[in-house]
Structures are given as structure tokens and as C-alpha cells.
Simulated scan of single mutants.
Amino acid sequence: MRNTPLSQVDATPRPVLAIATDYPPDTLLPRHVHRRAQFLYAMSGLMEVQTDDGAWVIPPYSGVWIPPGKPHQVRMRGVSTRSLYIEPEAVPRTGDACEALQVGPLLHQLLLASAEVPALYAPAGRDGLLLGLILHELGSARRLPLFAPMPAEPALARLCQALLVKPAITVRAEEWARSMNMSPRTFSRRFREQTGLSFGQWRQQACLMAAVTRLAAGEAVTAIALDLGYDSSSAFASAYRRVMGQPPSAARRGT
């Protein structure tokens, strides 16, 4: 199915629905929720996803897993997508948190083919087998480190949201601790309790997410590194490679 609203087919008695959709640049899908789980795959462009749990950046050839009933907002930056909507009893992944997932060559081709599957497909036919294989591949897809969990404490969440808007590797935990009238040790403990990450890890995630967006837009590695506060492009490239498993130049080329 292509450019079909989910509302038109959601009641179809099938465990999986596949819909291909093209979005104009900078399209915002305001906060909403689906009864079914969703796997949202970016064939091109970039997606920025926000939930109550945190924020994700999803580059091309990656996707985001959204559990059933999870409120979310998505900004599409020139994206052509393949979406799978999956009945709760058929979901291939456990847990109630969103995940950024790597899409390998086989899953990519399967998702391409899924656009031709009608809503009322034959479960035992080719289309049903194709969607069944997609579910299997989704269940074993590798999670990508493109997530900044959002703390529940309002004051801390406001600081995190501000850093997502203007990320900088030079922001120090001591500054945030002072603004919240906490000792550095208390702040560090509270931050890890709220996010599951140390402040330094979270700050790096925020910077890398911003970098992925800018690299996908074709910006120079050196300019991004300096804007984010790294001492040099090599220091930035080292941090990027350590987390992403590839140099930033690969993301800029779209490889």
C-alpha cells in the first residue's frame, strides 16, 4: 500500500499492515499514538523522534521500533518511509521502549517489497510469508546507539531539552549541579538514576545525534566538530567512530 492512511485499514484482520509514505521536507507528525506497534523505516532522509522516554535521530537505512500504545512525535526531513503496523500479539520485540534499529540488506529488500502487499493479503501466500520473514528479521535487528533518554524530573528534563536544542560537549555537570542547588556527587547520582546514563554519556549522545542530522545534510565534519565544542575534528571523529562504528565521513556520504 502506498500513501494510505492507517485509519482506513487499521481494522483489517491481518497481523501486519505495510504502508509506504513519502513526506515533504520538514514535515512534523504531531504527538500521536497507534493501537498497533509500528516499525518506521527511513528509505531516504532523516527522522527525529520524540517520546516521553527521550529522543532519537534515525538516519537513512535505519528504523525506529515503536511499541503499541506509545505516544510519539516525528519530524520528517525529506523522508520516504516504509511503515509496518503490527498487532500487539504479533510483535517480534520485547519491552515497552522505542529503539533505533539497523536495517541490513535483506531486511531493506523485504521492506521495499512490502509496499506492494495489499491490506487483505493471503496469510499463507507469498505476501504473508514475506511479512512473516520481516517480523523474524525485526526480532533480531541490532539496536543503534542514537538515543538520549529523558529524565522524569521536570527541572532536569528542561536542562536536557535545552542541550538537545543546542548541544555542546563542553557543558559541564558541575554547571547543571549548581543550577539545581546540588553537589556534583548528588547530581551525578540523580542523573544516572533518572536516565540510566552518566552525564558525560548523555551529553555525548546529544552531540552525536546532532552530528548525524548535520552530516546527513552534507555539512563539513570540521565545522560540526568545532560547533559542538570538540578540540579538533579528529577528537570528534574518534568519539563518533567509537559509538557508531564508522567514521563521520561515511554518514556524510550516505554510505
Score class of each variant (00 low, 15 high):
Tyr61Thr: 15
Tyr41Glu: 08
Met47Leu: 10
Tyr23Ala: 00
His34Arg: 13
Thr27His: 11
Asp26Gly: 14
Thr51Leu: 00
Asp53Pro: 03
Glu48Pro: 15
Val57Leu: 06
Thr27Tyr: 10
Gln38Met: 11
Ser44Asn: 06
Arg36Phe: 02
Ala18Val: 02
Pro25Thr: 05
Met47Pro: 07
Ala37Thr: 12
Ala18Phe: 02
Ala20Arg: 15
Val33Ala: 04
Ile58Gln: 00
Gly45Val: 08
Met43Ala: 14
Leu28Ile: 06
Glu48Thr: 15
Ser44Ile: 03
Pro30Ile: 01
Pro13Trp: 07
Glu48Cys: 15
Met43Thr: 15
Asp52Tyr: 10
Leu40Gly: 05
Thr27Gln: 11
Leu40Ser: 08
Val49Phe: 01
Ala18His: 02
Val49Tyr: 02
Val33Arg: 06
Pro59Glu: 03
Ala37Gln: 13
Met43Lys: 15
Thr51Ala: 00
Leu40Asp: 07
His34Phe: 13
Ala37Leu: 11
Leu17Cys: 04
Gly54Cys: 00
Gln38Leu: 09
Pro59Leu: 01
Ala37Tyr: 11
Tyr41Ser: 09
Asp22Ser: 10
Gly54Arg: 01
Leu40Pro: 04
Ala20Ser: 15
Gln38Ser: 13
Ile58Glu: 01
His34Ile: 13
Asp26Pro: 13
Met43Trp: 15
Ser44Trp: 06
Trp56Pro: 05
Met47Asn: 07
Tyr41Ile: 06
Pro30Ser: 03
Val33Trp: 02
Arg14Phe: 12
Thr27Leu: 11
Tyr23Arg: 01
